[in-house]
Every structure is written in structure tokens, then in C-alpha cells.
Design a binder for these strands. Structure first.
Ligand SMILES: [Mn+2]
Ligand SMILES: [Mn+2]
Ligand SMILES: [Zn+2]
Ligand SMILES: [Zn+2]
Lengths: 129, 129
DNA sequence: ATTCTTTTTGATAATGATTACTATTACTAG
DNA sequence: CTAGTAATAGTAATCATTATCAAAAAGAAT
């Protein structure tokens, strides 16, 4: 992992925002400091950083991929209208959801999805799919 | 919503399997009964049925979209290795997860994702993004 | 500092899933 | 049956992401 100006700019720009930007949005931010940076460089580095655990990759439900420089454990609220992502702290999550159920009209929260990840029975047994 | 043979075939094929197929997989199944059916027809009808609430659309984490004819409330296990989806009943879910944490080696479950859906503060206030 | 080796970049092409388009065909009400 | 509407087959377009690759930059070794 060599140090490059591009890498630094991408990392810093991602750290400077709270909007959980897409690659395109990071690209737009980076271009202001580095007009010749390539969109491919942005995609490539965001993926590398995410793989290395330096940033979070937010892969959700058919929408564009977003990235998060905040590595602390927390949850996200995705807006059905604008597609944006905002944070929900882990500490607040259970309290919030219980209260939200009772406070109608105060919040737009409409539901949540729970997805388990792992290795299925077939793969555990080495069967071909 | 007219009745068409294609619609019936797609619906029946989806009901006949437990694998939560992708559009491609439904297409492959449907072709056996109707060799000239178009992939576009499969995509179109699966989307329409999902929108109408006749089937479930399983949009998960950057993977291909899958569909489920089982409308009962239940959860899914997605395999990291093959990408397949299998069911977890709602009744079993909390018991299972607690027990799985203690039974190492017996299950491949490695984590889960929780995503909230709703309208964010900005959109609730009618602000442009 | 100079050369060599490896990594990274920028530009662009390719990919792959989904969606859009359109002329033709199938439904369905009357 | 016929007119009017909806759906289909075939294919093109879209769009986010990946892949490719020659040129440039970074790091290591002299
Ligand atoms: Mn976050
Ligand atoms: Mn299911
Ligand atoms: Zn919003
Ligand atoms: Zn599997």
C-alpha cells in the first residue's frame, strides 16, 4: 500500500462528511482538490480501503453503494425518498425503536430488515450448487 | 391485469420451488413449459407481482434480486459462498440465534444486518436534497 | 541522484443486471 | 366478431461497477 495523493484526498474527503457518500459523490468532492483524479481511482481506492477495514462499505438493497468513515458500531437509517443514509447509534437503537412505535407521526420509521449471513447447509457439506 | 399463460407459468413456477430464485432462474424454469417466453416478460411480471404484493421481492446487499412466493412472515439466511437464500421462521428466530451463538461449528451463522426504513428529517421537512 | 521494480493512476472498454422501447399478438368487454 | 386495451417477444439502452492497460509515480537498491 503506497502512499499517494489520491488516496489521501479520498480518505480525507470521506472523513469530512457525514452523508455516507456514494463513489460518485466522493469523486465530486475529490475533484475540487484534485481536478484530474479519475473516477476509477475513486472506486478502486474506496473498495481497497473497505477491504482493508479502513472504511465501511454500505451495501444495501439494490441501491448505490455508499461508504462510511465512521468505524464505530452503529446502525443506519435509509430514506425511501432521497436514498440517503443517516446514523443511528447502537446505544440508542433499542430504546428508539420501542419509543418510535408509540410516538406516531413523530418519526418516519416504517420498518426494518434483518438478514443473517453465514454458510448454508449445502456448502458446509461441500456439495456443489 | 389480464390473465396470460406467461403470468400463470411464472407464478406457478415460483410457487413450486423453495430456492428463492432470481429472475434468470425463474426464466429457466418457465422455458421448460414455455420455450418462447421472453426474459423481459419474466422480469416484468415478477416486478408487477411484487408491487401488487402477490410475491416478495428479496433485495439484499448488492446481490442479484430474488423472489419468494411465501408471503408468511419469516426471515432469510443468505449464504456467503453460493449466494443462495433459505428460510428462517419468525417463531424460531430468537431462539435460534441465541442457541447458535453457543453451538460453535454446528452453524455457519456469522452475523446479521439491521436496516431501518423510513423518511428522514430533511424529507419530512420538505427540504430539497 | 540514478536505475530498477512494483504499484498506482487515468482513460476507457467491458460487464451484468435491470429497465425501456416497440411492433406484434393476445385479452376482454360489448 | 370487433374495437380498444394490455401484454409479449425481441432487443436496445441504462447504469453502477469492474476490468484492462499503457503511462506515471512511488519505493528500494545501488
Ligand atoms: Mn454511519
Ligand atoms: Mn422465504
Ligand atoms: Zn430523505
Ligand atoms: Zn451455500
Amino acid at each position: 500500500m503506497n502512499k499517494t495523493v489520491q488516496r489521501t484526498v479520498i480518505f480525507e474527503e470521506l472523513h469530512g462528511v457525514k452523508i455516507h457518500p456514494t463513489a460518485d459523490e466522493v469523486y465530486a468532492m475529490a475533484r475540487k482538490r484534485m481536478p484530474n483524479i479519475s473516477i476509477a481511482t475513486v472506486y478502486r481506492n474506496l473498495e481497497t480501503m473497505a477491504t482493508n477495514g479502513d472504511i465501511l462499505r454500505l451495501d444495501i438493497a439494490g441501491k448505490r453503494r455508499r461508504y462510511d468513515a465512521d468505524l464505530s458500531k452503529h446502525y443506519h437509517l435509509r430514506c425511501r425518498s432521497c436514498g440517503g443514509v443517516s446514523d443511528i447509534s447502537q446505544a440508542a437503537i433499542s430504546q428508539v425503536t420501542q419509543k418510535l412505535e408509540k410516538l406516531k407521526g413523530v418519526s418516519g420509521i416504517e420498518g426494518y430488515s434483518l438478514e443473517f449471513r453465514g454458510i448454508c447447509e449445502h456448502c458446509q457439506n461441500g456439495e456443489v450448487k
